[in-house]
Amino acid sequence: MKKILVIDDEHIVRVSCQRTLTPEGFEVIIASSGSEGLELLEKGPVDLVLLDLKMPDMDGVEVLNEIKAKWPDTNVMMVTGYSSVETAVKTLKLGALNYIEKPFTPETLLTAVNEVFKS
């Protein structure tokens, strides 16, 4: 079973991801901040990290750098509001695999996640 970590400060986004991905056979763990997400990663590896770009304490780019420094093989997909797509594109160069824009439909999320595991 593939393990997915969702890092987002918004409760509703975390829940949306959980409710979309769990029925599809993914194990979803959640973190409400960048530091919490990194702590969870310390405990054990995950197959994919869904990472929000805009968060209060550590923003998505910092978290991404940390993850890529410590666990370079971890897949990371960015989740972003429309306003920060340019930053999202930048993150692709930093090692993120893909990004999806909020608000996303369950279908969009599933397609993007499956795309990661297919390759």
Partner: peptide, 21 residues
Amino acid sequence: AAGVAHEINNPLTGVVTFSHL
């Protein structure tokens, strides 16, 4: 408008996800 739009994106994600589900 940008600030408002960005904030609305999060709840909207919930609305979209749960109505689809």
